[in-house]
């Protein structure tokens, strides 16, 4: 609880300062003009979504190795927050693409693999709902997460391996220092917020799992008393 509060406070603080610098202090890009400011939300969304998916992959391995359900709680947290950021990534990218490339969407490798990534991990969340029991649910999710994760390095490296409309990764060498600062602040801000939400989602999963662990007769009694 305390760690979560700390993460949220630090995250909000960094993101607020980063957004202020990104919108009002950093210069516009020489060709893209102000549109380039979308970078300060788009790039952190991409980084943190992929980081969360990587964590989910680690939790999936830990779950299958140890069988402890706490890894399932963390795994669902990482995936859910990852999918939210992944969806945002696609919308932000579409807006940025319309303004710079001239199109909302094109089937280039970076865009396609990013969309596939969102669909695969959203699929893991859907799969969870179909499992007959808790043990199956955690196992199915872990196996599906490992398989879905294959796309994550592909998203990162595809622009280096294949031709694309999307540019390759920028680096501090290719980005004006006045633009690197808000990018860093927002990235760390979003990182802390995302970790806080992941832990929060994991806590929800844990308590709802405990609630469903109550033996059936007791549950029926609870529900009856609730209706009375």
């Amino acid at each position: 609880m305390n760690i979560r509060k700390l993460l949220v406070l630090a995250g909000l603080g960094l993101a607020a300062v980063g957004t202020y610098f990104g919108l009002f202090v950093a210069p516009p890009e020489r060709h893209m003009g102000d549109v380039q400011r979308i970078m300060y939300v788009h790039v952190p969304s991409a980084w943190i979504a992929m980081l969360l998916y990587t964590l989910a992959f680690g939790f999936a391995i830990a779950l299958l190795w140890s069988g402890r359900q706490k890894w399932d709680d963390l795994m669902v947290g990482a995936i859910e927050v990852g999918v939210v950021l992944n969806a945002l990534l696609l919308v932000q990218g579409s807006l940025w693409g319309r303004a710079t490339w001239g199109v909302w969407w094109d089937w280039d490798v970076r865009l396609t693999t990013s969309l596939v990534m969102a669909i695969l991990f959203a699929g893991v969340l859907v799969l969870r709902r179909m499992a007959p029991n808790e043990e199956r649910r955690s196992q199915w999710s872990a196996v599906a997460t490992v398989v879905a994760f294959i796309d994550v390095p592909l998203v990162y490296f595809c622009v280096r391996w294949w031709r694309s409309l999307h540019q390759i990764q920028s680096s501090p060498d290719t980005v004006d220092p006045a633009m690197v600062l808000p990018l860093r602040l927002n990235s760390f801000g979003l990182l802390f917020l995302a970790l806080a939400w992941m832990l929060w989602r994991a806590a929800i999963e844990r308590s709802s799992r405990r609630a469903s662990e109550v033996p059936l007769p007791t549950r029926v009694a609870i529900e009856e008393s609730a209706h009375a």
Binding site: L23, P28, R30, H31, M32, G33, D34, V35, Q36, R37, I38, L95, W96, R98, A99, T100
Partner: peptide, 9 residues
Amino acid sequence: VIGGGWSYV
């Protein structure tokens, strides 16, 4: 140079 980019931002 892109002008009027603020609406996208």
